[in-house]
Design a protein around this nucleic acid. Structure first.
Lengths: 242, 242
DNA sequence: TAGCACCTATAGCATTGCTATATGAACTGA
DNA sequence: TCAGTTCATATAGCAATGCTATAGGTGCTA
């Protein structure tokens, strides 16, 4: 049960704290649990880390290095914006894999103590965005883009962590990710999108959909389905009012 | 020093907790501080709230109602997307005004306990986005848009809270806000900015119709017909490309 | 061997969240 | 009017927490 090995007590404390934190499911982790698992008594902890928070900071620092290593692992693909996407996904995955650690890092940020990590994370992303900027693919300053993207990235990750694991829908992540990247990128995608003056009401919307469907023979519905669908649409669109 | 007045102890406890939490600057607030400020002894707290967390939940609930009231205060301007902007700004302002409360609400979210508030906040935003969808201004399902926007909104607010007050740059907020809104909106804003991710008018119209139908419980179709209809509509509106 | 950092353990303090138990107040039904 | 019941508060204290004053090894250098 005890994390022995011949590792020095400092390391054992770090590992014990990390392990307990990872499996705590939100419950507070006591110094006694940590020291017991590490096979060490209390003063040792305070000698090496000064504080419970000091120990946790050390754990977070280690976790952050792991995070940074993950972010850097992806070789530059030559398409900076694609790298940003992978960076985003890696960030989300890190948060979902180690939710407790992530919450300590990004969930409890307070003005007086925490933003060192945030600054580092921003720098990491800015570095990547700089390449995009050099390639003329950026719409705004890399620093502002990095801050903005990272903020959204953190928000999405927190939301996904808050959701019970089985319900997690990663589409939230990809959608927000692409929205942010698109917003800061200078590329004009492609043209068109007629976008008629959207005045509301069921009838107008139904008529618009009816016309659009017939014009584009969408293959999302079978032909028999489509026939019935259009009939209903007709009933709706010729009704007096919604 | 004590929060007397003739208020009932329950109220005094709530106010004391809220006040201490607001001025705690991140330091933990003990039940003894709370009960002392409220002029009450410990069992009273546990009689009314069961738990320290129960008391904090009540404080959060009160804070959330204040938040919701703020969100609803803005009369619909007739331009739903403009309302969403003000909703976003109000959210950020709420977080900056009551950072401690905000951190309890959105910073410490854990899968097992917290997401009720998140769900409520999402519903609030979805409600607003529905109007945009009905008007044919949305590119994606209102629910997905709401989740995405709210996630970014929370992330930005946390980042701003983490930053020391004097350095806070609200441009981060407005930039991220407009990026998100632009990304989910169907209209090319003005003629100059043509390209968005080319979702066809079929999809936009389907989303609008879907929202309108759900908003107006049309009785043109039987419930079973409607169910199937909506299912098809969903298939169309979530298809990769029209 | 002596001295000197360094690291760890024994034992215990003050504070924390919480509760077993008892007391008071307010209402109800006869 | 008064016993019975329910709700609300208080007295006193428990177990667990973070932390520390003090002392005891250990290994080095001289």
């Amino acid at each position: 049960m005890s994390l022995d090995g011949q590792l020095p007590p400092k390391m054992r404390l770090l590992r014990a704290a990390a392990e307990l934190l990872a499996n705590s499911a939100g419950a507070p982790v006591s110094t006694r649990q940590i020291t017991q698992l590490a096979g060490v008594t209390a003063p040792t902890l305070y000698h090496h880390f000064g504080d419970k928070e000091g120990l946790f900071d050390a754990v977070v620092a280690a976790g952050f290095e792991e995070y940074v290593a993950g972010e850097r692992d992806f070789a530059p693909s030559g398409q900076p914006l694609e790298d940003i996407r992978r960076m985003w996904d890696n960030h989300v995955q890190f948060g979902l894999n180690q939710p407790e650690l992530y919450l300590v890092m990004f969930g409890n940020i307070r003005p007086e103590s925490r933003p060192a990590i945030v600054a580092d994370a921003e720098a990491l992303m800015e570095e990547m965005l700089n390449k995009a900027a050099v390639a003329g693919q950026l719409n705004v300053q890399p620093r502002e883009a990095a801050r903005s993207i990272l903020a959204a990235n953190v928000g999405v990750t927190l939301m996904l962590i808050a959701e019970p694991a089985p319900d997690r829908n990663l589409e939230l992540s990809t959608m927000t990710r692409d929205a942010m990247i698109f917003a800061v990128s200078a590329e004009p995608a492609n043209g068109a999108a007629p976008g008629d003056n959207g005045r509301s009401s069921v009838v107008v919307a139904a008529i618009a959909l009816n016309a659009a469907l017939q014009a584009s023979h969408s293959d999302q519905l079978s032909s028999s389905e489509l026939k019935l669908f259009l009939e209903w649409l007709h009933r709706i669109s010729t009704s007096p009012a919604g």
